[in-house]
Write a protein that binds this DNA or RNA. Structure first.
Lengths: 205, 205, 205, 205
DNA sequence: AATGAATGAGTTTTCATTCAT
DNA sequence: GATGAATGAAAACTCATTCAT
């Protein structure tokens, strides 16, 4: 119960990160529902009110979690291929490995961006744009494609994968149920179907 | 106050439809939130409990609304073109004209399919599959493409548009905010960007 | 935990009254703070949600308590004097004997009437008006004063006593403190000071 | 960021006044709710903790605001009439022109005096007594009335006006609602009704 | 003296669902 | 079949106050 005060900017940043991490872990445990602020505070070892000194609203907290996942994702990117095909695979795989990111990202426009100041909204969207731009910047010389072109494709691809994820992310019970009932056609596979859409978009057969 | 009993199957079907219509109208009025069962019952002129004799859960009700919208959508389709391009435009336009459908459809896997029996889940997915299949069946001779091929493309296209919709459906205030901040790149336009993805998928340049 | 359903209008009225009584008792125990809905529900032996099927908001509940106190007050009135002086004494004494009424009445315009529908607001004010009017109607022949005149005096007198109560209703510790510090002048006595204002208003020396 | 220490007594008094003024302005903007200490601190340009070095509790702060309003009110008084009637009008008008004073004064016994030390309570009541006494002292030779008599009348009049204010201070919407529903009788007018009570109290017809 | 991070109790209201009538 | 009274979990957010720095 001892209060630890974060006086310096640095310390505050650390505590902020602690809260974000706590939220992430909770999300990772139970993907289908945003944890309550109470749970997050408990996990982070702070009082409920403290969460609100670092984040305006619940939504801002989770948008911040998402932003931090975006940063981590960006850093993880390998930029060592000249083949678009490999690049797309990495794109898909790296997202598939980050279900929390996909989950939050698909909630972002519908849920998270609602109860948030314009400032926070912009911060998030700028982060997203910068991330996609960053990739475009590195890859365009390799692919010998105009950068602007690539930026747009990055954005579209991102949107595609969010959409595909929606329908992919159902319980394995329900997946089996689809197969058992001859409904393979509406049983989405994230990688297979994601690539099936992205490849033609990127000019691959 | 007066209780009207629906004894015949026909009468029951009518009452069921009344409830679905009431739910649709409420949704149309206020897109950003599922109406409560209370509101639906009131609008339909029945008691809350009655809704539960026709629908297992709230989720089943809205999945049924969605299914009914799918049926209406399917019927509205004009199948009088041989050009894929026209077809895709119709696809996109017809969805854009049905925001309630898009809204519910994007909620379906994440929210609606959760609290529902396997039976209801299957009924919904079968309806969706049948609808997409139906289109595929009519179009494949016109496009001179194997039907199986077309079915798959329909499913993928549907997923794409759901994804694009997610990011398109934000308040006009926020859209303006994006433009004002030079973030046009992450400002999605449903038709433009939807077609930009669908066209290559369907083999158009 | 057993649920008892109040189906008939009569039964509902009884349950409504039970909740009002529970709220009154809580108020009587602790005058300085409105009890929470949780407490009221517990005391009344119903679930929290049940309170909200009988009252729109917390404010409506307490306005209803007040209205019920007004009714009881009105009924308690003895109208057997022809002397204004006696009448005023009864007026003052009967209020002094009803601290919960005074407390709620002084909260009414400032707190209770805020979060309430116009309908509920009117119901309360009509009840108050009717009560004061009722007294005026009975007394005007006795006092040989025009009724309209009397009605107005009733309203003014009521306002006076609410004001006097405000300053009278402090803890006895604080009262002693005033006396000990030679501040008798701002130490209000409800009956003495109330009558000192009312008497001239009603034409007594 | 920069901390400015108020070492001398004078400097402290200035800072204290700054906080009181900030609280007043906030109150003037939004009469229906006491501003939070956070808001006051922000407006005064000091830290939250600083407010607590000048005032024991929130209640003391607002009691101090009230006291300062009383002082200003007393100073504003014109003592240039020998007619009680004029004096009463000035009394009523000067209060009507000070809604923040009336608001706080009516909150004083019920809310503000609660969470406050005896010392602060006394300071406030003494201030109030002195103010009313001051007026009595100046006026009694003019009115040719014993001073003690006048003091008492001042106190009673003050209480009356606080009571009248309670019921007068409702939104104009609700006022209109009363008129529209033939409830003019319970629609209080501060000046008219205040004077109707004060005049007989002061021996005017 | 001044700061502002941390606390955590406290409360209204909503609403899906049940089930006695 | 229809009703609607009853349930009670659930949760975000506020804010006066403290106290380490």
């Amino acid at each position: 119960m001892g209060k630890i005060r974060s006086t310096s900017l640095e310390e505050k940043e650390i505590k902020r990160t602690m809260i974000i991490n706590a939220a992430f872990e909770l999300l990772d445990d139970q993907l289908d529902k945003l944890p309550s602020i109470s749970e997050v505070a408990k996990k982070a070892g702070v009082a409920k009110g403290t969460v609100y000194t670092y984040f305006e609203t619940k939504e801002e907290l989770f948008l911040s979690v998402l932003l931090s996942l975006f940063h981590e994702w960006a850093k993880s990117f390998q930029f060592d291929t000249k083949k678009v095909e490999h690049f797309l695979e990495e794109f898909v795989d790296s997202l598939l490995a980050r279900p929390v990111l996909l989950k939050l990202a698909s909630k972002a426009p519908v849920v998270l961006e609602r109860n948030v100041s314009e400032e926070v909204f912009l911060k998030y969207r700028k982060g997203l744009a910068k991330l996609l731009d960053g990739v475009a910047e590195v890859m365009h010389p390799k692919f010998e494609v105009p950068q602007e072109n690539l930026r747009k494709k990055m954005v579209l691809s991102y949107n595609v994968l969010i959409g595909v994820w929606q329908n992919y992310d159902i319980s394995s019970d329900l997946k089996n149920c689809l197969v058992a009932n001859n409904l393979e056609i509406v049983n989405i596979d994230f990688k297979r179907d994601g690539l099936a859409i992205l490849k033609p978009l990127w000019g691959l057969s």
